[in-house]
Measured scan of single mutants.
Amino acid sequence: ETKSLTLVLHRDSGSLGFNIIGGRPSVDNHDGSSSEGIFVSKIVDSGPAAKEGGLQIHDRIIEVNGRDLSRATHDQAVEAFKTAKEPIVVQVLRR
């Protein structure tokens, strides 16, 4: 079962304390579909994302501050987090 969660993150020394993997390839599949998503791959101990109620590894990131990342490329997702103003509201899907 997958549930949708909304989390609020604040940077600590400029970092949110997690890494992402995935992202849509720069070239779409011929039918326009994509199974890619942006997923949390690593969480830094005691970083902002590790706090209670924070992110978990394998969370799929859907949205950052209202910006849809469900079909974003990896670079677009990285840029969305880099430029996001605080508080950073992150919507994820968690299995």
Rank of each mutant, 00 (worst) to 15 (best):
39 F>M: 05
18 F>I: 05
95 R>K: 08
66 G>T: 02
23 G>T: 10
24 R>H: 12
57 I>R: 06
72 A>Y: 05
40 V>D: 15
19 N>T: 13
21 I>K: 12
33 S>K: 15
11 R>F: 03
47 G>L: 06
49 A>G: 11
73 T>Q: 04
92 V>C: 04
70 S>C: 07
24 R>K: 12
25 P>C: 11
53 G>E: 07
51 K>F: 08
52 E>M: 11
89 V>Y: 08
44 V>W: 12
41 S>N: 10
40 V>G: 00
88 I>P: 02
10 H>N: 15
3 K>V: 10
43 I>L: 09
1 E>A: 10
11 R>D: 03
70 S>Q: 09
2 T>D: 14
32 G>F: 15
63 E>R: 11
61 I>Y: 00
36 E>K: 08
62 I>S: 02
53 G>R: 06
3 K>Q: 06
21 I>C: 10
6 T>G: 04
10 H>M: 12
61 I>F: 04
59 D>R: 00
62 I>M: 15
30 H>Y: 11
9 L>A: 02
91 Q>L: 03
46 S>N: 13
33 S>P: 11
15 S>K: 12
73 T>W: 02
39 F>T: 05
32 G>M: 13
64 V>I: 06
29 N>K: 15
46 S>W: 06
11 R>W: 02
61 I>H: 00
68 D>H: 03
52 E>H: 13
8 V>N: 06
47 G>D: 05
44 V>D: 13
61 I>A: 00
4 S>K: 14
28 D>N: 11
55 L>R: 01
53 G>P: 07
41 S>G: 08
75 D>E: 15
41 S>T: 08
21 I>R: 13
20 I>C: 05
39 F>W: 06
61 I>S: 00
54 G>W: 05
46 S>R: 09
26 S>V: 10
85 K>I: 12
41 S>R: 04
91 Q>K: 15
35 S>N: 14
35 S>I: 12
93 L>P: 01
81 F>Y: 08
63 E>G: 11
12 D>I: 15
50 A>H: 14
35 S>P: 10
93 L>G: 04
35 S>L: 10
37 G>E: 03
5 L>C: 07
31 D>G: 13
30 H>N: 10
67 R>P: 02
91 Q>E: 09
8 V>M: 15
9 L>S: 01
84 A>Y: 00
84 A>E: 03
89 V>A: 06
53 G>K: 09
49 A>D: 09
89 V>G: 03
72 A>S: 07
19 N>M: 06
92 V>W: 02
67 R>W: 08
23 G>C: 08
21 I>M: 12
13 S>Y: 09
45 D>A: 13
8 V>Y: 15
91 Q>V: 06
63 E>I: 04
93 L>R: 08
54 G>P: 04
68 D>S: 07
6 T>Q: 14
34 S>G: 11
78 V>D: 06
52 E>V: 13
42 K>T: 11
93 L>N: 08
11 R>N: 04
42 K>P: 03
73 T>A: 03
1 E>L: 08
67 R>E: 10
94 R>E: 01
11 R>T: 05
28 D>R: 11
93 L>Q: 11
11 R>S: 05
22 G>P: 06
23 G>H: 08
51 K>T: 10
85 K>G: 06
50 A>L: 06
88 I>E: 00
12 D>K: 14
44 V>P: 06
53 G>M: 08
5 L>N: 03
63 E>P: 00
30 H>S: 12
93 L>D: 06
60 R>S: 02
43 I>V: 09
18 F>T: 02
